[in-house]
Design a binder for these strands. Structure first.
Length: 542
DNA sequence: CCCAAGCCTT
């Protein structure tokens, strides 16, 4: 085991803090060239930020966002970089292209409403934009809306292309499992002169596999040759994925062995799929063996390959190997991002390997990988758990680091866990005037914290003030705290008040109360009897 | 348009 793992925590923490301070100075410089305004965006929120800021210029019809915002968005989603920066260097942005690029991004992130809103903002969307909007809706499972977008397109005289039809096919296969309807659509597109291609059929194959009909999928694969579009590597990868899910690795081996005979060549995705399947079945050694096979075949392992193996190592808590893998990623030619480090660091924090978290952080910095908010949040939590609250606070307060609400939530919770209620109350007070606004989780944490600190009436008042209707989770947290604090009388009064107002007591509330009684070990007390009476009433009402 | 992995808080 490497020497640093056994080295005293304090020393590692000290170096990490020094490195951090250095980092913040460095980070501050490029941020100026990114954007001058206050809309500092943490990369994870880039798509949200764009959603907020887009409205086209009524004069020119051009989107107002500058290159810097697009850069940040595209930087966050590398696959789309070429869409956002068309090669032909037009200086007039092409509206449909640009809209479509964003719509695609939103579709991928499951943000159908944003994609739809962009479609609505356009004066004359083309077939690609309509198709992308349909895709976004289908991905979100909103099939009726997808169909009405399709109808709208037809009613406007825009002819659907094979891609549009393929999305309908996807919808019928994936969501409705209506394969006959899918076949009818394929017939329809042929009748209307659209080419059905390998993608159309691969979609059906993916749908059949999802529905557990692998035999039918294999049959269709065979048929594709006579239909004039033989399966390609993607079709086979779909099938490999299905057999991996089944745990039928003999069949996967057979498909790979016969590949050249069937006129296709496995790619990185084929092996990533296979390796992932083996990892999911806990077959670590076999997974690593397939990595070797991959390398033998001169197929480049990708960041995905690394993430799959990393996920496996994390599940198995293989600390040394995690560090080793990330450390060697550059030598393996892998372009590792912050997300991979975050995955590893999260797991290391979970299992109490706080010095390993800091080791990975300094590893990132040495390699020039820019940590994101999530990285810092994990680091902050690790420092707290390791008893280094003041160091965590130091990062929190550092210039150059933009904390988000999760950072605040972590600190609030950790202050309470450490019994540092003065710090807790101070941060709560600061939240009121700060630039980050509290979310539902914040309120839960505050309710928990007030109860832990024995400030029961304050907690009750707090819940009253944020949630007049007692509709939220906060009441459940309050109930938990009251039971644990022996304030069942207060709780009964509160429940009585809610019932009187005709407010619904939900299951979650009772889950929390029952848990609290169990934790307290007072399940036989007279008080729980009263609670049970209320529960009975509720059950009758429902 | 079809295939692989993944990150922070109660």
């Amino acid at each position: 085991m490497a020497a640093w793992i056994s080295s005293p925590f304090a020393a590692v923490a000290r170096t990490a803090i020094k490195t951090l301070c250095f980092l913040f100075n460095v980070l501050h410089l490029p941020s100026r060239s990114w954007s001058s305004s206050r809309d500092e965006i943490n990369s994870a929120d880039a798509s949200d930020a764009v959603a907020v800021s887009i409205t086209e210029d009524p004069e020119t019809g051009i989107l107002p966002f500058g290159e810097s915002l697009l850069y940040r968005l595209s930087h966050h989603i590398p696959q789309h970089r070429h869409y956002l920066f068309p090669r032909d260097s037009d200086d007039r942005p092409r509206r449909c292209d640009r809209y479509n690029a964003l719509m695609k991004t939103f579709a991928r992130f499951g943000k159908a409403d944003e994609a739809l809103r962009l479609l609505r903002e356009m004066k004359t969307p083309n077939v690609i934009c309509y198709t992308t909007a349909m895709d976004a809706l289908v991905r979100a499972g909103r099939c009726e809306e997808a169909e009405s977008v399709f109808s709208e397109m037809i009613s406007l005289g825009i002819a659907p292309d094979s891609v549009a039809y393929s999305i309908l096919v996807k919808m019928y296969c994936f969501h409705h499992k209506r394969f006959v309807s899918a076949r009818n659509i394929i017939q329809l597109m042929v009748d209307r002169g659209c080419e059905r291609d390998v993608v159309t059929y691969s979609t059906v194959i993916a749908g059949l596999c999802r529905a557990g009909k692998i035999d039918l999928a294999s049959e269709l694969m065979e048929k594709m040759r006579s239909l004039g579009c033989p399966p390609d590597v993607v079709s086979y990868n779909v099938l490999i994925h299905a057999f991996c899910n089944k745990g039928d690795f003999a069949e996967v081996e057979r498909i790979l062995r016969e590949s050249s005979h069937n006129g296709w060549e496995p790619d990185s995705v084929s092996y990533n799929t296979y390796i992932s399947g083996l990892c999911n079945m806990g077959m670590t050694d076999e997974a690593l063996k397939q990595l070797d096979v991959m390398l033998e075949k001169a197929l480049h392992p990708t960041e995905v390959t690394l993430n799959i193996l990393l996920g496996m190592l994390c599940r198995d808590s293989k600390i040394t190997e995690i560090i080793f893998f990330l450390a060697r990623s550059f030598e393996l030619g892998l372009d590792v991002g912050a997300a991979s480090y975050n995955t590893a660091m999260t797991r290391l924090c979970e299992i109490g390997e706080f010095s390993a978290v800091l080791k990975l952080l300094s590893d990132m910095l040495k390699k020039g990988i820019r940590p994101d908010v999530q990285t810092f949040n994990i680091v902050i939590m690790s420092l707290c758990r390791a008893g280094k609250l003041h160091k965590a606070k130091h990062i929190f307060k550092s210039k150059g680091f933009t904390p988000d609400i999760v950072t605040c939530n972590i600190l609030l919770h950790e202050f309470c866990l450490a019994g540092e209620f003065a710090e807790f109350h101070q941060l709560v007070a600061e939240l009121g005037s700060g630039q980050v606004s509290p979310d539902a989780i914040t309120y839960n944490i505050i309710v928990d914290g007030l109860c832990w600190d024995g400030k029961f009436s304050k907690a009750i008042e707090f819940v009253r003030s944020i949630d007049l209707e007692f509709k939220s989770d906060h009441v459940a947290h309050l109930a938990f705290g009251l039971v644990k604090g022996g304030r069942v009388g207060d709780l009964l009064r509160l429940l009585g008040e809610m019932i009187e107002k005709g407010l619904l007591l939900d299951v979650r509330l009772f889950e929390f109360m029952i848990q609290a009684f169990c934790k307290k070990g007072s399940c036989e007390s007279i008080e729980i009897y009263k609670i049970c009476l209320i529960l009975d009433k509720m059950l009758r009402r429902e």
